[in-house]
Design a protein around this nucleic acid. Structure first.
Length: 632
RNA sequence: GCUGGCGUAGCUCAAUCGGUAGAGCAACGGUUUUGUAAACCGUAGGUUGCGGGUUCGAGUCCCAUCGCCAGCUCCA
């Protein structure tokens, strides 16, 4: 008698012969791309030898999408191999919104090549080749990929351990080493688009050969693909590098790559943000200082930056000695701390600084405001006793919460642990890592662990946000440091009169003010909330007759701390309104003859449009309230 | 830094095969005096990123360089 298995599908239990393929079941969802059996994603054509609960994965499931995109990557590789038979395949995974394949090519790729590859991919789709799984012995795998001169695949085979099944997938003449799973046929891939080409080192190591990485995306239908491409276009319009200059906030110039020119409006925004940070920190016992921005090399040698950070520093040679511009404030703050004898009663001492920092970033890594060479942090160093670590860390996380809630910025917490080139004593590192984890748990924060990504002097907690194109950027950082107090020999006097070593907490909440503004521009698409907007209100006289009245209103607004201007140009009202809307000014106070007579302003808001006449100056008091900083 | 791509007026873009660099918006001058997203007329604006080369002739072809874009690497 043939062995049977029991499969539960959509609540119904079926008795089926062992070896049945999900693909052949009459219950199969016609949109299914793969099957899910008790937590495992399987090919639809996988013969089932044991029973369980089976679900269909479609393009709406992330698992289904992943299979779809992974098969699309194979499709890409097959097309490239048809066009360049001596191309050598690297790896080609699925991504969130698409896929890529790293391929070594004898010639550089050009735009028209992408179109040719796409055309070939469509041909393979129309051939509707069956996709077949092969399970291979190591010898077979080596033979297959040697025959095809796929040296990179052979390297992968070598690294596969003996306890793993070596599998490959075949579609037509094409075979790729792959664990799968995959779609049943190439015909499933309804629409593909190759988006861009770039270089990528084999296995991500700089000394390895550079492969050509071809990115693409794919969807079941042409309409879905076009919708996706339209969304990408939308996102590009939010890009801070486009919006910033458009809104006249900042610019970059060839003469100073990686440094920001802050225009009047952008700098206003910058100062508002800094003021926000100042007020929150003063309330919490921080003291603002300003320390030198250039130090003799000897300090950097003592602090460890010379060994761990020199390549990223701007160095200056004068009078036969080397000086370095500061990439961080910590050594300066430590020196300031050291300048007096400190009692245990003085701690914690919280030193804040907003001064300029410079880091020499490699040219290819610069990216608008999000990666610059010259920037400012809302930086602070907390000098604390060991028994104060927990409480102070708790306070920092609390401040962070206030700040990020004020902007409604979605963020992720990452806990980065000891890197390979760490400085100092292993026991201290372990202690610091345990402290950080304990505070995270006590605050109930969700976090991910990023092993070996800590700073060279201590483990850190990073907050990152995502830009308009889905790239992740680190904003806040909180680091516990037992090393620097040691290196620079910091101490305080404890309650028994003994010298003790303080602990340093490095922290920046906004992170870099530059980067934070870049993220904010994209987050709000340039339409900043009232309290942040560089120009909060624009007074628009309808005719020349109201310019004096308009000026009067503007002066009064300013006197009460509202940033306002008057558009007195000889233009129609509609024109001025249109410009104010495009500049994303949150409030427009329109004044015509009627307003002047009745002592009103005609209010228009950026979001709601015309709201009619409001008595003046009553409206001023409403505006003052609406424009308050979100300090709690 | 590496691989590939792109640099034309302040912005968005055009210029056939190598043959006189052009338009809209913005700016400026004037007319208009206006009630909720673009009034009208006119003027000016350029060493085509910078430097070489090929050619009778280069925005266009070649070399080099700078900057930017995508990704890699790096990343407090």
């Amino acid at each position: 008698m043939e062995p049977e298995i029991q499969l539960e599908i959509e609540g119904e239990v079926h008795q089926l012969p062992s070896g049945v393929r999900p693909f052949d079941l009459p219950e199969r969802d016609p949109e299914a791309l793969a099957a899910w059996l008790d937590g495992q994603v399987l090919d639809l054509k996988k013969p089932l030898l044991k029973g369980g609960t089976l679900q269909w994965l479609t393009f709406d499931d992330s698992g289904g999408r992943q299979v779809f995109r992974h098969s699309s990557a194979h499709l890409l590789a097959q097309a490239v191999k048809r066009l360049w038979p001596n191309a050598k395949l690297g790896t080609g995974p699925a991504l969130e919104d698409g896929f890529y394949y790293d391929i070594w090519l004898p010639v550089p790729l050009t735009e028209p090549d992408l179109a040719r590859i796409e055309a070939e991919m469509r041909r393979i789709v129309s051939e509707n080749l069956p996709i077949e799984r092969l399970e291979l012995s190591r010898e077979e795998a080596v033979r297959i990929f040697s025959e095809r001169a796929e040296e990179f695949k052979l390297q992968i085979v070598e690294r596969i351990t003996d306890d793993t099944t070596i599998s490959a997938y075949r579609q037509g003449e094409f075979v790729d080493l792959c664990t799968g799973p995959h779609l049943p046929q190439t015909g499933y891939i309804g629409a593909v688009k190759l988006t861009n080409v770039s270089g990528a080192y084999w296995r991500g190591e700089e000394q390895n050969p550079m492969m050509t990485r071809i990115y693409g995306t794919s969807f079941p239908t042409q309409e879905a693909l076009e919708e996706h491409l339209a969304r990408l276009e939308e996102a590009k319009l939010r890009d801070h590098r486009k919006l910033g200059p458009q809104l006249d906030l900042f610019s970059f110039k060839e003469e100073a790559p990686g440094f920001t020119f802050w225009h009047p409006k952008g700098y206003q925004l910058y100062r508002t943000l800094e003021e926000f940070s100042r007020r929150l920190q003063e309330e919490r016992g921080y003291q603002e200082v300003s320390t030198p921005w250039i130090y003799r090399a000897a300090l950097w040698q003592r602090s460890g930056h010379w060994d761990h950070y020199r390549d990223n520093m701007f160095l200056i040679e004068r009078d036969d000695e080397v000086l370095g511009a500061k990439p961080m404030n910590c050594p300066g703050h430590a020196l300031l701390f050291k300048g007096n004898i400190r009692s245990y009663r003085d701690l914690p001492i919280r030193l804040a600084e907003y001064g300029p920092l410079s880091r020499f970033e490699r040219s290819g890594t610069l990216h608008g405001l999000l990666r610059v060479r010259g920037f400012h942090q809302d930086d602070a160093h907390l000098f604390v006793r060991e028994d104060q670590i927990h409480q102070e860390m708790f306070g920092v996380l609390d401040l962070m919460d206030v700040v990020y809630r004020a902007f409604g910025l979605p963020y992720e917490v990452v806990f980065s642990t000891r890197p390979d080139d760490y400085m100092g004593d292993l026991a201290l590192w372990n202690q610091a890592e345990q402290e950080l984890e304990r505070v995270l748990r006590d605050r109930g924060l969700k976090y991910q662990i990023n092993p070996k990504d800590g700073a060279f002097y201590g483990p850190k907690l990073d907050i990152s946000a995502i830009d308009s194109l889905g790239r992740r950027w680190q904003l806040a950082t909180i680091q516990l440091d037992f090393q620097l107090p040691e290196k620079l020999d910091l101490h305080y006097v404890d309650d028994e009169g003994h010298w003790r070593r303080p602990v340093m907490i490095h922290r920046a909440i906004l992170g870099s003010v530059e980067r934070f503004i870049g993220i904010l521009v994209e987050h709000y698409a340039g339409a900043f909330p009232l309290w942040l907007a560089p120009i909060q209100a624009r007074v628009i006289p309808i005719t020349e007759q109201q310019v004096t009245y308009a000026e009067e209103i503007r002066r009064k607004l300013h006197r009460h701390g509202i940033r306002a201007d008057v558009d007195a140009r000889n233009q129609k009202m509609g024109y001025k309104i249109r410009e104010a809307q495009m500049e994303k000014v949150p409030r427009m106070l329109i004044v015509g003859g009627r307003d002047q007579e009745n002592h009103t302003v005609s209010l228009r808001t950026r979001e709601q449009g015309d709201l009619g006449a409001k008595p003046w100056p009553d409206y001023l008091y409403q505006l003052i309230e609406e424009a308050e900083m979100p300090l709690s």
